[in-house]
Computed example of a mutant assay.
Amino acid sequence: MAAIPTSVWVTAQRNSRTQRAGRYVRESVAHPAKMLPDIAAYAIGAYTEPGDLVVDPMCGIGTTLVEAMHLGRRALGVEYEARWAKFARANIALANSQGATGDSARVIRADARRLAKVVPPELLGTAALVITSPPYGAAVHGQIRATAETGERGVQKFDYRYSTDRSNLAHASREKLVAGFAEILSGCRQILRPGGVVAVTARPWREHGELVDLPSEVIAAGTSAGLEPIERCLALIAGVRDGQLVTRPSFFQLANIRQARAAGVPMHLIVAEDVLVFRAPLDGDSAAQNGSGRTPATADSPLPPNAFSP
């Protein structure tokens, strides 16, 4: 397979709280693995045009849908958990109240592994872009509160699980997670228009000291689903100031790094997420273009118009 071109997305010049302030209902913060709004907005600006359909098969609180609406795109989300689907609909309503120009957005509560069966038939083969991320990494997600006031030491962790429903893919073993995600990507191929794009955010993590290379497993899953890998990008989750990266680690990331270094493992804070970009088969169009007729941004090409500058 030919080498996949890379590019860097400058998507964390504002911290996550600032990106969401006033744009999402307060209860949204409870979701353990929210996509950064600026990452979703960057992908939408890079691979779609106003009026295009953007789909998120595991939409959570609806970040992709909200950002699509504010950029004048149509949006469709699928979400397994009733709680997150409720918040996604609330965020859509908030976007509408704020004058978002996208003319339609909808959330379907269903299992994304049945994507092609739950999406309205008239939308099959019409999506310009799918944005998603596999559920993973409970060890690095969540929020904390200090426990000193109760006479205990340390911190208490909360909002670090997607649900308690064991049928949720988030509870699956790594092997079943990858297999289930491959099913989802197969469904994505059916809802994409010819040349449409799938952008998947993922990152490696360590489990009992072993490196889990999830991005590589996502590439394999996408290829098995009949999608063509066209880019491997980095979406920054650290800011850029005066030529230096400004990290924005969570408590758990800091704790994991300190533990690893104490054990002699030279780990560093994560400053970016992998973005694996795939394309649906084309119908006779140039292999150098995506479904909107635009050449994707790579390390050697200009960034899209909505690139976030320092």
Rank of each mutant, 00 (worst) to 15 (best):
W205G: 00
R23L: 07
T295S: 13
G196R: 09
P249T: 03
N290Y: 00
R279F: 03
C59N: 08
R74C: 03
R23H: 05
R106W: 05
H171A: 10
P37S: 09
W84D: 08
M35R: 10
D111N: 14
Q259E: 14
T147G: 00
I61G: 02
M69F: 01
K157L: 11
N290E: 11
G243W: 08
D213N: 13
G291I: 05
L214T: 06
L71F: 02
Q259N: 12
S133K: 02
R83S: 10
A112T: 10
V212G: 00
V107I: 05
V212K: 14
D213C: 00
V197P: 03
P266S: 12
E175R: 14
P134Y: 06
G151E: 10
G51W: 03
R109G: 01
P204D: 12
N91D: 08
L123N: 02
D111A: 12
T11R: 10
A172K: 06
Q19S: 13
P134T: 12
D274T: 12
A43V: 11
L94H: 02
D283I: 09
G187W: 06
A272M: 04
A148T: 15
V271H: 15
T147N: 09
V240W: 09
A146P: 12
C188F: 08
E149L: 13
W84P: 08
Q253T: 10
V197I: 15
